[in-house]
């Protein structure tokens, strides 16, 4: 078990299975199909992301460097939360990007009964250590336990 300390972007706690992408998460490409066709497990639809393509994102601890792609990205993340198809938490190794930050904040402020805590700046070592399938515990102070 290893612990990493990050910076809280939106608060909360979570315990979930890790889903890891080493490349950036293209939010629109990843969520669009799942939102459009009622897939509650939110299988990733981004064919350009071999780490995530076809894998269920809903309820997972999504570990990533940053998000990429269309500037509708924040809005798409907000929709995923409002439609209850969001990851259990999002854990960024880098400083969060403006699109992911917008999505996290929109969900936090405008969606009442959804909790998707977001922590960033966990460092490169975090993304090197964590593997899909590991168990993640996110504590309220931004500490991430990986086991």
């Amino acid at each position: 078990m290893k612990k990493f300390k990050g910076r809280i972007v939106t608060p909360g706690t979570a315990k979930a299975e890790a889903l890891v992408t080493k490349g950036g998460l293209n939010t629109l490409a990843s969520f669009q199909k799942a939102l459009q066709f009622g897939d509650k497990t939110a299988k990733c639809g981004d064919q350009n992301n071999p780490d995530l393509y076809g894998k269920e994102m809903a309820g997972k601890a999504l570990c990533l460097p940053q998000t990429i792609g269309s500037t509708t990205g924040g809005m798409v993340l907000y929709c995923a939360c409002a439609m209850k198809r969001q990851p259990a938490c999002m854990l960024f190794s880098n400083h969060i990007d403006s699109l992911a930050a917008a999505g996290a904040v929109l969900a936090d402020v405008w969606v009442e009964d959804v909790n998707m805590p977001v922590v960033d700046s966990l460092g490169d070592e975090f993304l090197e250590y964590v593997k899909s399938g590991m168990t993640i515990t996110l504590e309220a102070d931004g500490t991430v336990c990986v086991e």
Binding site: S70, T71, T72, G73, G74, M75, Y78, S98, L99, A102, G103, L106
Partner: peptide, 25 residues
């Protein structure tokens, strides 16, 4: 603004100032 191609044009060619915001924001 948020449209990425318009943001980069406004910043670079017109000298305006804008972050790469998301839709709704």
């Amino acid at each position: 603004w948020a449209e990425s191609s318009a943001v980069v044009y406004a910043n670079s060619v017109l000298g305006a100032r804008c972050n790469r915001n998301s839709g709704i924001v």
